[in-house]
Design a protein around this nucleic acid. Structure first.
Length: 999
RNA sequence: GCGCAUGUGGCGGAAUCGGCAGACGCGCCAGACUUAGGAUCUGGUCCCGAAAGGGGUAGGGGUUCAAGUCCCCUCUUGCGCACCA
């Protein structure tokens, strides 16, 4: 296909210029700005006095450089942030727009295990590919700040922050992290060993022996956030619980602040909600139950069980109690024999194990343990459990209630025990119905709702001294009552667990920790960075130790101490990378304080811009990081804030999630095993199935129960009939229409390199933004790229003289290579002249300025592009095109299609000011919208009769409501519809509309 | 199951404050230029109707002079959470 314009010469030319001149370098306080730099020309006072203009920090979630290279989803967010960055640069901000690599990670390590190639090599090659691809898109990154999490000069500071965590504790009194030296010790701790144990148990980074999520397929443990439905988030492999010694970070200490400070940031509500749910704060009470008949029945036994409940007001309705199967007290509780009259159903599902409570409990525990987490959640439909043989005493009424164990109670949440109130808890009700346990109503539901199964707030009934009280009051009163008697108190629980921070991997940051005599100690700061050892083999050892344990010389130190062999998770590097960008090459700290204050603080803003914001002004990335990276990052940032290392409580002030880009739309037609076509209308349970020939859709024919399979068909074979698409050849057969997530196995991945080759970077950028709103899921359609490509072609032809372009085309075919100097043969179109624009032309320009500016402020890139298209469609019809209007147009176009805009601006400048150097487009001021330019003498006003459009009137813009009304009633067309009818009411919205209501 | 989104021409989408539904682009139709067109330019393109006109924003109801937009109910598709007491 013939090229619309020579993007293949223009784009590399300007990318080279931008890189060579450090066009997009962001300047730090204290740096000398070279006099010749366009930034110095735009901000002469900054260059002279060092007083920098206001900052704007716009950040992308940096990529993991995989071997597959960029896919079209990456540049979606990058293009959006680049447009915002270029826009703010034009508005006069000092813009920080950096890029880097989240390069530790599993794929490079797995490749190393297979081939023996050091992950560093793989990583470097992948980074080179990513960098080339990203640079080919013309983004205005400041490459002098490029970072790589695997670079020792970077992870030195990751390790340094870990040591900060290690050397800190959370002071509950101040609710802040403080240096470990400030930790007060209880008087009883005599020896240094005791004090050490006490101290180590309070550090923000501590060692735990608790059960962890072990993923055998990945050969490592995982954090809770990395486990989805009992499977690993990466790869979907099974995960089992296994006790291991691991490093933990005390994120739970920050639960309240992580929750509360969500109010400080401008994030999508859905995302805030995900974080709130993950943190899962719930207020309630702990209630202590005495045990009435204890197992061993020793006189000194004063066993008690503490439960957590959010509904202490329902305590009178507790008819049984449930412990998690793993609960520590279970063993002490069980009596040697079943109490008299224990129903058989209470003794467990296995008849062989019904002899004693102990046998039944053991059988149940084994059965529960054998279930993976996956099965425990998926097979949770049916409740199960066994009676322990023991009874507890309800503190409010002295009633004896049976104690059960059941796996619907989690050991890891609350106290691992609950009081069951079946009347007002769905799960307890299911359980009670299955085992025929009593159900007692203690909350009255509002009129018209059944009391049993009512779980919301109501009025307490059958509840002694709290009867008649509304739920919130009842909660308060009973909690106070429990507190007075020392059998309960108000408390808060979190779903959030501490962060499991160690991994059994090679390709991650080593811990700056050594072990001696069973105790850990930190390396001194001077020992950082601690590099991983060289290895031949990257697999874990035979006896299951992490790969680092293979490096005997590295592990063992002369004094007999040994190094920690776990490494940090991939999240460590991404937790704080936005801070390293601020001062990426500074060797003596992760960032200089005054630099941090400038970029992360709140400064004054230029006139007419949006309100100032602290922290990162805009952060764009995928929603998949809602509870991983974003939660971890906020946690680290708060610790650094407490320790005085950063100046804001939150890092990311405004955050936007870009929507997923799906593959091209696909049509599919189903047929049964015999090959007969089946309409989608008759099929249920359509889902994707991975088969030998990739993925395909399968379903079940509702009438016959037969399995049906889909075959992809061409768009030409279908047509729309009413609501649905059908086969053209057989309209009775409805087909399936949808877009799929891009995946290698489906074969619908679009490679940006291919699009760039054919249409150029500007067209690619424009299409990514033109597809639809940034945050929406949207299907890719390569045809759509052609649309914006043609638009750029029209822009080119708007500026360029036709004859000179033909000469240029001819010389292109003969010249070797494609030298950029050939572009100089292009002359500007003769229709472009240094004339004063007409009012009509100014109206076109200022309508465009207004629309594009407002849309950029609201990040509505798709409609901003459409406004630029409207401008071009107008301008292209002008016989004389004022150079000043075209120049302003190019400034508006520049954030979206920077290469073409820069080239045309250079041509235009050479024409209007020959002999002088063309100014750098990126630093030309954004055009200022002038409302006066839109004022018209006349205005068109639609006239409706009973809400239906009947006429349009052209009236003086200044016409009064009475004049408009008279003109409307006088209209011939209107009178056709009002004739013979009584006019009830006339609504006149001046300048907008007239509506005449008639009877 | 719970929660959050979402639904507008053949397709992607626009309508920002309740005021002319369908901007802009794709596709399609017709024409011009052309040896040619997968280039470019011009015009047309929600549906029914010859026109006048009528209908129309998932479906049903409501508020209003006026509803894609506000309220109630139902449905669709997508995403998130899923025994958290």
């Amino acid at each position: 296909m013939r090229r619309q314009y020579p993007f293949h010469i223009i784009e590399p030319k300007w990318q080279e210029v931008w890189l060579r001149t450090e066009m997009f370098r962001a300047w730090n306080p204290g740096e000398t700005i070279p006099a010749g730099h366009p930034f110095a020309e735009r901000h002469p006072e900054a260059a002279r006095t060092g007083q920098l203009p206001p900052k704007y920090y716009v950040l992308d979630m940096f990529p993991y450089p995989s071997g597959a290279g960029l896919h079209v989803g990456h540049p979606e967010g990058y293009t959006a942030t680049d447009i915002v960055a270029r826009y703010h640069r034009a508005r006069g901000f000092n813009v920080l727009h950096p890029m880097g690599w989240d390069a530790f990670g599993l794929p490079a390590e797995q490749y190393a295990i297979k081939t023996g190639q050091h992950p560093r090599k793989t990583t470097e090659a992948n980074i080179a590919t990513f960098k080339r691809q990203i640079q080919s898109l013309g983004f205005s990154y400041d490459w002098s700040r490029e970072i790589d999490t695997t670079d020792p000069q970077y992870f030195k500071w990751t390790q340094w922050i870990f040591l900060k965590l290690y050397h800190s504790w959370f002071n509950p009194a101040t609710r802040r992290a403080e240096p470990i030296e400030t930790l007060p010790y209880p008087s009883g701790l005599a020896t240094e060993t005791d004090r050490r144990a006490y101290r180590d148990a309070r550090r923000l980074a501590y060692v735990s022996e608790a059960p962890v999520n072990w993923c055998p397929a990945l050969g490592t443990v995982l954090a809770n956030e990395e486990v989805v439905d009992g499977k690993s988030e990466v790869g979907g492999f099974p995960v089992v619980r296994k006790p291991m010694r691991q490093w933990m970070l005390r994120i739970t200490a920050y639960g309240d602040r992580l929750l509360a400070d969500l109010d400080l940031v401008d994030w999508p509500e859905s995302l805030k909600k995900m974080q709130r749910d993950w943190i899962g704060r719930s207020e309630g009470a702990e209630v202590t139950f005495a045990i009435s008949e204890c197992g061993p029945a020793t006189p000194e036994c004063n066993c008690q069980i503490t439960v957590f409940t959010t509904r202490p007001d329902t305590l009178f309705g507790a008819t049984y109690m449930v412990l998690a199967p793993e609960h520590k007290l279970v063993d002490q509780l069980m009596p040697p024999a079943w109490p008299a009259n224990t129903p058989e159903a209470w003794k467990g599902a296995a008849p062989a194990a019904r002899g004693t409570p102990r046998a039944a409990v053991e059988a149940y525990r084994q059965q529960a343990a054998a279930k993976s987490d996956l099965e425990r959640t998926e097979l949770a439909k049916e409740k199960s459990g066994v009676f322990t043989g023991a009874w507890a005493v309800n503190p409010v009424n002295g009633e004896k209630i049976p104690i059960w164990i059941a796996d619907y109670v989690l050991a890891s949440y609350g106290t691992g025990a609950i009081m069951a109130v079946p009347a007002h808890d769905t799960r307890d009700l299911e359980f009670a119905r299955k085992f025929e346990l009593p159900v007692r109503i203690v909350v009255q539901a509002p009129e018209g709702q059944p009391d049993i199964g009512f779980v919301d707030d109501g009025t307490s009934v059958n509840s002694g001294f709290i009867s008649g009280l509304p739920t919130p009051e009842a909660k308060r009163k009973i909690t106070a009552w429990l507190e007075e008697r020392g059998v309960g108190h108000k408390t808060v629980n979190f779903k959030l667990r501490d962060w499991l921070f160690s991994r059994q991997r090679y390709w991650g940051e080593p811990f700056p920790i050594v072990w001696k005599d069973g105790a850990h100690a930190s390396l001194p700061e001077a020992a950082l960075p601690l590099l991983p050892p060289a290895l031949e083999d990257y697999k874990p050892t035979q006896d299951g130790q992490p790969p680092l344990a293979r490096a005997r010389d590295w592990v063992s130190l002369p004094d007999g101490a040994v190094r920690e062999t776990n490494t940090m998770p991939q999240w460590a590097g991404s937790c704080w990378y936005y801070l390293r960008y601020l001062d990426a090459r500074f060797p003596h700290a992760f960032c200089q304080p005054e630099v941090e204050r400038y970029w992360m603080g709140t400064g004054p803003v230029p006139n007419g811009s949006q309100a100032p914001t602290p922290g990162i002004n805009l952060y764009v990335g995928g929603a998949e990081h809602a509870v991983l990276h974003l939660l971890y990052s906020r946690f680290w940032h708060k610790v650094l804030f407490d320790l005085g290392c950063v100046s804001t409580p939150e890092p990311f002030f405004k955050l936007v999630n870009q929507g997923l880009i799906l593959g091209e739309m696909e049509f599919a037609c189903f047929s049964d095993a015999q090959g007969s076509l089946v309409s989608v209308a008759e099929i249920t349970g359509i889902e994707e199935e991975a088969g030998a020939e990739g993925r395909r859709l399968v379903g079940t024919q509702a009438a016959t129960g037969q399995k049906v399979t889909a075959r992809r068909i061409a768009e030409e074979e279908v047509e729309k009939r009413g609501e649905h698409f059908c086969l053209k050849t057989n309209p009775a057969i409805r087909v399936d229409v949808r877009s799929f997530k891009m995946s290698k196995s489906r074969g619908n991945v679009v490679n940006p390199d291919d699009i760039l080759q054919e249409y150029g970077a500007d067209a690619f950028r424009l299409y990514e933004m033109f597809m639809g709103p940034l945050e929406m899921v949207k299907p890719w359609n390569t045809k759509g790229v052609e649309g914006v490509y043609r638009f750029l072609g029209r822009v080119w032809r708007l500026f360029v003289d036709e004859d000179s372009e033909q000469e240029f085309e001819q010389s292109l075919t003969t010249a070797a290579g494609a030298p950029a100097s050939l572009l100089d043969r292009i002359r500007l179109s003769a229709s472009i002249q240094d004339t004063t624009p007409t009012p009509a032309q100014l109206k076109v320009l200022h309508t465009g300025i207004k629309k594009v500016t407002e849309d950029l402020d609201g990040m509505r890139f798709n409609t901003a592009i459409s406004a630029l298209m409207v401008m071009v469609n107008e301008i292209i019809g002008w016989e004389v095109k004022p150079a000043s209007v075209l120049r302003d147009f190019l400034v508006l176009l520049q954030p979206f299609a920077p290469h073409l805009a820069e080239e045309l601006q250079a041509r235009l400048a050479a024409h209007t000011a020959p002999g002088q150097n063309a100014p750098a487009l990126a630093y030309l001021p954004w055009p200022v919208f002038d409302p006066a330019k839109l004022v018209e003498d006349t205005v068109e006003i639609p006239v409706q009769v009973n809400g239906k459009l009947r006429d349009r009137l052209t009236l003086p813009a200044r016409a009064s409501a009475a004049e408009i009304e008279a003109a409307a009633l006088a209209s011939e067309k209107v009178r056709l519809f009002t004739a013979g009818k009584a006019v009830k009411k006339i609504i006149v919205v001046p300048g907008k509309i007239v509506n005449i209501a008639v009877a």
